Simulated scan of single mutants.
Amino acid sequence: MKILIIEDAEKTASFLRKGLTEKGYVVDVESNGQEGLVLAQVNSYDLIILDVMLPQLDGWSILKELRASDNKTYIIMLTARDDTDDKVKGLNLGADDYLVKPFAFSELVARIQTVLRRQSSIQKDIMVFADLEIDLNKKRVSREGNRIELTPKEFMLLSLLIRNNSVALSRSEISEKIWNINFDTDTNVVDVHIRRLRAKIDDGFKKKFIKTVRGIGYMFDES
């Protein structure tokens, strides 16, 4: 497993490199935001540990640029503030998890293992629902034979809904399984991702798969 750390605090970066290398990971470190983005774009990584406050280009901009270019590498954000708005912003931009400084190294390792385990736990299978085809192994989705590009979180969300076919899932159930966190009831991150997923999966097609269940949440319904 290869990890990129984009962190400008020298002591933190050195500590993380040493600890993760001892855990068996191959680790690259970059302190400059712009250079870190280039590394993430030209190299293949299993996971990126991304600080928010960086010189030249901040973590939010790096995250946004990577997701806009369809880079699906798993990303854990490091934030200095335990602020719900910052966390939600990162998750909405496509981060897979976040960690607030200061943190225990053991917690970071646990977060890394959890994020990487999500990928390996997806069944190796192709599922077909009418004109919608999902390759759970290659993470590819198509409708009427046309490829649909999904972000990692959108694909995880679609996979979750499909695995619970015709079962309504609440927003709290979805946020816990996809983001590994319980969101406040006034947080709309689940609704935002559902809206984006619908725009790609259902908009423009007669048959709609993603349904809203009033008073509960959402479900995938092939009927």
Score class of each variant (00 low, 15 high):
Met1Gly: 03
Lys2Trp: 06
Lys2His: 11
Leu4Asp: 02
Asp8Trp: 05
Ala9Arg: 12
Ala9Phe: 11
Ala9Ser: 14
Glu10Val: 12
Glu10Trp: 11
Lys11Cys: 05
Phe15Val: 09
Phe15Glu: 09
Arg17Met: 13
Gly19Ala: 07
Leu20Gln: 01
Thr21Ala: 15
Glu22Asn: 07
Lys23Gly: 07
Val26Met: 10
Val27Cys: 06
Val27Gly: 02
Asp28Gly: 01
Asp28Tyr: 04
Asp28Lys: 04
Glu30Arg: 04
Gln34Lys: 14
Glu35His: 06
Leu37Phe: 08
Leu37Val: 04
Leu37Pro: 03
Leu39Gln: 08
Ser44Thr: 15
Tyr45Pro: 01
Ile48Tyr: 02
Ile49Lys: 00
Val52Trp: 06
Gln56Gly: 02
Ile62Glu: 05
Glu65Val: 13
Leu66Ile: 09
Arg67Thr: 04
Ala68Gly: 04
Thr73Tyr: 03
Thr73Val: 15
Ile76Thr: 01
Ile76Cys: 02
Met77Leu: 14
Leu78Phe: 05
Thr79Ser: 11
Ala80Gln: 12
Asp82Cys: 00
Asp82Ala: 03
Asp83Phe: 02
Asp85Ala: 12
Val88Leu: 13
Val88Ala: 06
Val88Asn: 11
Lys89Asn: 11
Leu91Ser: 02
Asn92Glu: 15
Gly94Ala: 04
Ala95Leu: 01
Asp96Phe: 01
Asp97His: 14
Leu99Ile: 08
Leu99Ala: 01
Val100Phe: 03
Val100Lys: 00
Pro102Asn: 09
Phe103Asp: 08
Glu107Leu: 11
Leu108Met: 11
Ala110Thr: 14
Arg111Val: 14
Arg111Cys: 11
Ile112Gly: 00
Gln113Phe: 09
Leu116Thr: 08
Gln119Pro: 09
Ser120Asp: 15
Ser120Met: 11
Ile122Ala: 12
Ile122Tyr: 14
Lys124Val: 07
Asp125Ile: 06
Asp125Met: 11
Ile126Asp: 08
Ile126Gln: 06
Met127Arg: 11
Asp131Glu: 13
Asp131Cys: 06
Leu132Pro: 09
Lys138Asn: 13
Lys139Gly: 07
Lys139Ala: 09
Arg140Cys: 07
Arg140Phe: 12
Arg143Lys: 05
Gly145Asp: 07
Gly145Ser: 06
Arg147Thr: 15
Glu149Cys: 05
Thr151Leu: 05
Glu154Tyr: 05
Glu154Gly: 05
Glu154Asp: 09
Glu154Phe: 07
Phe155Asp: 02
Phe155Cys: 03
Met156Gly: 15
Met156Phe: 13
Leu157Met: 11
Leu157Asn: 00
Leu161Tyr: 00
Asn164Cys: 03
Val167His: 14
Val167Gln: 15
Arg171Ala: 04
Ser172Gln: 14
Ser172His: 10
Glu173Thr: 06
Ile174Lys: 01
Ser175Met: 01
Glu176Thr: 05
Lys177Leu: 05
Ile178Pro: 01
Asn180Trp: 03
Asn182Ile: 13
Asn182Thr: 13
Phe183Met: 09
Val192Ala: 12
Arg196Leu: 10
Arg196Tyr: 10
Leu197Cys: 07
Ala199His: 14
Lys200Glu: 06
Ile201Asp: 03
Gly204Arg: 13
Lys208Val: 08
Phe209Ser: 00
Lys211Asp: 13
Thr212Gly: 10
Thr212Cys: 08
Val213Ala: 09
Arg214Leu: 15
Ile216Glu: 07
Met219Phe: 05
Phe220Val: 00
Phe220Ile: 00
Phe220Ala: 00
Asp221Tyr: 08
Glu222Asn: 10
